[in-house]
Simulated scan of single mutants.
Amino acid sequence: MGRAAIQRGDVVVVTGASAGIGRASALAFARRGATVALLARGETGLKAAAAEVEQAGGAALTIPVDVVDADAVTAAAQRVEAELGPIRVWVNVAFSSVFARFEDISPAEYRRATEVSYLGYVYATMAALEHMRPRNRGTIVQVGSALAYRGIPLQTAYCGAKHAVQGFHESLRCELLHEHSGINVTMVQMPAVNTPQFSWLLSRLPHQAQPVPPIYQPEVAAAAVLHAAEHPHRREYWVGSTTMATLAANAIAPGLLDRYLAKTGFAAQQRATRRDPNEPVNLWEPADGPDGRDFGTHGRFDDRSHTLDPQLLASRHHGLLGAAAGALLGAALVLRGARR
Rank of each mutant, 00 (worst) to 15 (best):
F198E: 08
T246N: 07
E81Q: 15
I105K: 02
R101G: 07
A77G: 09
I215C: 05
V73T: 09
S96C: 11
T15H: 09
L39S: 06
A108I: 12
W238L: 08
L308C: 05
G167W: 00
A192G: 04
A82G: 13
A323V: 03
L84V: 02
L154V: 05
F295E: 10
L38H: 06
P286N: 11
G2M: 14
A113L: 12
P191G: 02
R150V: 08
P153Y: 00
T243H: 01
D10E: 14
A323C: 02
E230M: 08
A324K: 08
R293E: 11
S117W: 07
A56G: 09
A82T: 12
A224F: 03
I215W: 03
V36I: 12
D66S: 07
I6R: 04
S315I: 14
F95Q: 10
V225P: 06
D69N: 07
E279N: 10
H131G: 15
P107M: 07
R339M: 11
R173Q: 09
L308F: 05
A224Q: 03
W238P: 01
A223W: 01
H227C: 00
I6Y: 06
L257W: 05
M190E: 01
A4G: 05
H231W: 00
H318T: 14
P107G: 10
D303W: 00
N250A: 15
A49T: 15
I215L: 05
R41H: 08
V65I: 04
Q217N: 08
D288V: 05
L38I: 08
H207E: 10
F95V: 00
Q166A: 09
A5T: 13
A267Q: 02
R340T: 06
P213V: 11
S145V: 02
T195R: 03
W200E: 05
L257E: 06
